[in-house]
Amino acid sequence: MAAPQDSNETSYLLPPNSKDWEEQGVPDFVYGQKELVLEGIQWPRTAPSLRDRTPRSRFDSALCSAWRQRMELGLFRYRLGELQTQTLPGAVGFVAQLNVERGVQRRRPQNIRSVKQAFDPEQFNFNKIRPGEVLFRLLREPDLPGALQQEDILVMINVSPLEWGHVLLVPEPTRRLPQRLLPGALRAGVEAVLLSSHPGFRVGFNSLGGLASVNHLHLHGYYLAHRLPVEGAPSEPLDPRGHLHLLQAPPAPGFLFYTSGPGPDLEALIGRVCRATDYLTDHDIAHNLFVTRGAPPGKTSPSSALTGIRVILWARKSSFGVKEGDAFNVALCELAGHLPVKTSQDFDSLTEAAALALIQDCLLPPAQAEKVQAALVALIAQDKQ
């Protein structure tokens, strides 16, 4: 069935005269229960493109048309072309992409010293961006359960994009929230994935120390027209009710939360995930999170069965700043199997073994990992739902 088209797509585009940008204000993208796509999303035989005219959801149409316009207007740090892409030989299925411009031209990360660091208004934050960088405000209709209070989520371009359609989801930037995951932000991220009919639209979060470069609450969302290992990686339950699982397969062991769609089950998942990230933040443990359509937990989960939403959480060593000499820096997309590589030389020579070694170097030592696992299992065991 064709996804609904946006009947007012031009409302998310900027007027030709830049002087009118501020006067126009931020348009609202209002969505309801019926637009959350629960079933029928799967990978086609040929990789789907965001640049063709195939039917897309209203969310995809609004985001991609506005994002493309901002690219044409020169609001990004570089013009993103078709990225050279390869699947590394081996059992994991790493998707490597050459993105030289991002490695050279992205904004330097802020001076972060702690996962719990307070917001600093003197540092760059999303209240300092140009008006044209905001695409729209994401608003839920009252028929959607779970929100006692409406969140003001701004969807804005990432000026140093990883891939096509790379955006930031920023909850109420004027509140000056530090980079600590909150339920409203996670709900917006999960529902953004459900609003897209593209199987490769993913959302993620980097904590401070987990390569977040700006200490102002935000999530990443972007399209990648390739399957990733974590979509169907096998897992083992860590609690008898199945609320927490352990992904054991490469690229990296992580904690898996799963929901089949919106409603009480999704609200319970949001609560569990945020309790887990609160524990990690309170104990100054860096972490990354990835939201993707995927298979239910289990020992064997074919990646083609995108029947629900997988939320994967990795606890990892803190890493402050960027390691210039590495082929890639390990954050949310790398742990999921997507490797944006900085140089042609590294792209041509990168192997699965080398990629796994770089990722392994960022993980917690075994003793600390076991301690974190035990703590999260005990935390989830207190869940009454």
Score class of each variant (00 low, 15 high):
Ala2Thr: 15
Asn8Ile: 06
Thr10Glu: 15
Ser11Asp: 14
Pro15Cys: 04
Pro16Asn: 12
Ser18Thr: 13
Asp20Ser: 14
Glu22Trp: 03
Gly25Cys: 08
Pro27Glu: 05
Tyr31Gly: 05
Tyr31Leu: 10
Val37Trp: 04
Glu39Trp: 12
Glu39Cys: 12
Gln42Trp: 13
Trp43Ala: 02
Trp43Ile: 04
Pro44Lys: 01
Pro44Thr: 10
Arg45Asn: 13
Thr46Val: 15
Ser49Trp: 06
Arg58Phe: 03
Arg58Gly: 03
Cys64Trp: 14
Ser65Thr: 13
Ser65Val: 13
Trp67Ala: 03
Trp67Arg: 05
Arg70Asn: 06
Phe76Ile: 01
Gln86Glu: 12
Pro89Met: 03
Pro89Ala: 11
Ala91Leu: 07
Phe94Trp: 00
Val100Leu: 09
Val104Ala: 15
Arg106Val: 03
Arg108Tyr: 08
Ile112Asn: 07
Ser114Leu: 10
Val115Lys: 04
Lys116Leu: 13
Gln117Cys: 08
Ala118Asn: 11
Glu122Ile: 03
Asn125Leu: 02
Asn127Gln: 14
Asn127His: 02
Lys128Ser: 15
Lys128Arg: 14
Lys128Leu: 15
Lys128Met: 15
Arg130Ile: 10
Gly132Pro: 06
Phe136Gln: 01
Leu138Phe: 03
Asp143Lys: 04
Leu144Ile: 12
Gln150Thr: 11
Glu151Val: 01
Ile153Ala: 01
Ser160Asn: 06
Leu162Glu: 01
Leu162Gly: 00
Glu163Cys: 10
Trp164Ser: 09
Trp164Arg: 11
Val170Asp: 00
Pro173Thr: 09
Leu177Ser: 13
Arg180Phe: 00
Leu182Gln: 10
Leu182His: 07
Glu191Val: 06
Leu194Ser: 09
Leu194Thr: 09
Leu195Asp: 02
His198Tyr: 14
Pro199Val: 13
Gly200Arg: 10
Gly200Gln: 04
Val203Arg: 04
Gly209Met: 06
Gly209Leu: 04
Leu211Glu: 08
Ser213Gln: 11
Val214Asp: 07
Gly221Glu: 00
Ala225Gln: 07
His226Val: 08
Arg227Ile: 06
Arg227Met: 12
Glu231Tyr: 06
Ala233Phe: 09
Glu236His: 13
Pro240Val: 09
Gly242Ala: 05
Phe255Trp: 14
Leu256Arg: 10
Tyr258Ile: 06
Thr259Asp: 08
Thr259Ser: 11
Gly271Met: 05
Val273Ile: 02
Cys274Phe: 08
Arg275Gly: 11
Asp278Ile: 00
Tyr279Gln: 07
His287Phe: 12
Leu289Val: 13
Leu289Phe: 03
Arg293Leu: 08
Pro296Ile: 09
Pro296Lys: 15
Gly298Gln: 07
Gly298Met: 08
Lys299Gln: 14
Pro302Ala: 10
Thr307Gln: 15
Thr307Lys: 15
Ile309Gln: 07
Arg310Thr: 04
Lys317Tyr: 01
Ser318Met: 09
Val322Phe: 10
Glu324Asn: 12
Ala327Met: 02
Ala327Asp: 05
Ala327Arg: 04
Asn329Tyr: 11
Ala331Phe: 08
Ala331Gln: 07
His338Tyr: 14
Pro340Gly: 02
Asp346Leu: 02
Asp346Gln: 09
Phe347Gly: 06
Ser349Phe: 08
Thr351Trp: 07
Thr351Ala: 08
Thr351Pro: 05
Ala354Trp: 00
Leu356Phe: 05
Leu356Ile: 12
Leu356Asp: 08
Ala357Met: 06
Leu358Ala: 14
Leu363Cys: 11
Leu363Asp: 10
Leu363Ile: 06
Lys371Leu: 12
Lys371Thr: 13
Ala374Gly: 15
Ala375Leu: 13
Val377Cys: 09
